[in-house]
Design a protein around this nucleic acid. Structure first.
Length: 469
RNA sequence: GGCGCAGUAGCCAAGUGGUAAGGCAAUGGUCUGCAACACCAGUAUCCACCGGUUCAAAUCCGGUCUGCGCCUCCA
């Protein structure tokens, strides 16, 4: 299995620190609002990475945080006149709902920044002891960036370029830094803000220290994979490396993975441009499985454009898989043949090739677009070879294979068949009688009536089938 | 100014040296009372443009044009 590592800028063979186990940390959202579809990309992408690794037999310890103390959360809390924790708890709950609908698995641990303050104070203390950090007069603690030799190794920047391009933005406190590149580890509270006591001042942590600490606590000082959106490469992940490696004295993460951005109509998504969508917005119009399918149809390191037209196309593509599984399920229930026929066992053997193609694609830096192409090839194969005369074993073999590959992608492709109401069943029966008597007027009336109730009928070679709209 | 990414059919998108996957849409056909589903068929002599390397390039090198991202909170 090869993974593109931002650190080396190339694909590398994945070798876990500990055989059979993967320690993985994904930077999670700041919970000040409903998550947007840009937040959804890393969630879906890295959930798929995790699922694939589990499929390959790895035991994955997957940690993803919630940043629940931050300027934006505090601002919102003040606007609403409530505690910051009320805002953050609310949006953590909402975020979890969205994740569930996208079929993103729960992390092994979902730490919250506010519950890890002790660890942060410890690490900041260590950094000061080792000379990598210093407290200014007002109690703000800064990381001494130039004291860490490897600074810039992830984003491939050198310190002098950074300074050269540095705009003269002397924000409050900027003048008390030893160097403009130094960044905040701990900052003093302002009136009305949540704070914690420390030996430097009553205050709260800087953003970067959170992840260094949570990663260390739940995964250890050295981890396999650290992931997030590409915008986090600098400064967030660069700073995490500096903090963790300076404090622990060992390499932080072995592989750094970053997903590219999701754009809206070829523009970066932003509230000011009015092209901002929350996952909740999308869920009103589409099954979020469609969003997931859409995200996986491109490579995670390529920018992906979002538009209504593209979502329609994704929906149709996704439906093709769902329909095929539905057909196989229907045939399975209705076939009389049980045991595998000879030619079927050959076909089933042939169908295993699609699993191989799928795995080859995923092994190559999680090429989900190619992997999905393998699923489509399998769907085509099933559509061509499965029919009313097929054996149960054969049909089940094909269906299970589609289900297996879809599940690795986190795609739910099997519709739950709820029991039909007695009335609806009666109507379908009546329509069949009408069709037999060539009373198509009545037959269409019934079909339209059912359509209004959200039941779509399809007359296939195998019989009448229905699905919910 | 510094660093980096991308440009493949109407749309989306794989493919990083051996002669263009897959999906959506559209077209013709089979099936069907009709519709939907499904299947079959053809569908880029060519991968932004120019030059170079090579027996061989969408794939490597140089240049040009275009779009985009990061360098500041941001997935």
């Amino acid at each position: 299995m090869k993974i593109y590592n931002t650190l080396s800028k190339r694909k590398e063979e994945f070798i876990p620190l500990e055989e059979g186990k993967v320690k993985m940390y994904v930077c999670g959202p700041t919970v000040y609002n409903l998550i947007h579809i840009g937040n959804a990309r890393p969630m879906i992408v890295f959930d798929t990475v995790r699922r694939y690794m589990e499929h390959k037999g790895y035991e994955v310890n997957f940690v993803s945080n919630f940043t629940d103390v931050d300027d934006k959360i505090i601002k919102k809390a003040i606007e609403e006149g409530v505690e910051a924790s009320v805002v953050s708890e609310r949006y953590i709950a909402e975020c979890k709902k969205d994740m569930k609908a996208m079929n993103v698995k729960e992390a092994t641990t979902h730490p919250k920044a506010t519950e890890e303050i002790c660890g942060m104070l410890d690490m900041i203390g260590t950094l000061i002891e080792k000379g990598h950090a210093y407290a200014a007069e007002d109690g703000t603690v800064y990381f001494r960036t130039r004291s860490f030799q490897g600074y810039g190794k992830l984003s491939h920047k050198n310190l002098d370029d950074l300074q050269g391009g540095n705009r003269s933005l002397l924000v409050t406190g900027e003048d008390q830094k030893e160097d403009p590149l130094d960044f905040v580890l701990w900052k003093p509270k302002k009136e009305g803000e949540p704070y914690w006591e420390s030996s430097w001042c009553d205050g709260r942590p800087g953003w970067h220290i959170e992840c260094s600490v949570m990663s260390k606590k739940y995964l250890g000082e050295e981890i396999d994979i650290h992931a997030g959106g590409e915008d986090l490469i600098f400064p967030h992940h660069e700073n995490e490396i500096a903090q963790s490696e300076a404090a622990n004295g060992k390499p932080f993460a072995k592989y750094w993975m970053h997903n590219a951005f999701l754009n809206i109509d070829n523009r970066k998504m932003s509230k000011s441009e009015g092209n901002f969508f929350t996952v909740r917005d999308i869920s009103e119009k589409y099954d979020l499985q469609v969003l997931r399918f859409f995200m996986l149809s491109a490579h995670y390191r390529s920018p992906l454009n979002f538009s209504a037209e593209l979502m329609e196309a994704a929906q149709n593509g996704y439906e093709r898989i769902v329909t095929s599984v539905g057909n196989l399920g229907y045939l399975l229930e209705n076939t009389a043949t049980v045991t595998l026929k000879e030619e079927e066992s050959g076909l089933l053997e042939q169908a295993k090739g699609f699993i191989t193609s799928f795995e080859e694609a995923m092994d190559d830096d999680f090429n989900s677009a190619d992997a999905i192409a393998a699923i489509f090839d399998l769907v085509k194969f099933a559509n061509v070879h499965a029919n009313a005369g097929s054996s149960k074993e054969f049909l089940k073999g094909l269906k299970d294979e589609i289900l297996l590959l879809s599940d690795i992608c986190g795609l739910i492709v099997e519709r739950k068949q709820e029991m039909l109401d007695r009335d609806i069943e009666a109507l379908i029966g009546e329509r069949q009688a009408a069709r037999k008597a060539k009373d198509f007027k009545r037959a269409d009336e019934i079909r339209n009536e059912l359509l209004e109730k959200g039941i779509i009928l399809e007359d296939t070679r195998e019989g009448v089938k229905w699905k919910r709209a």
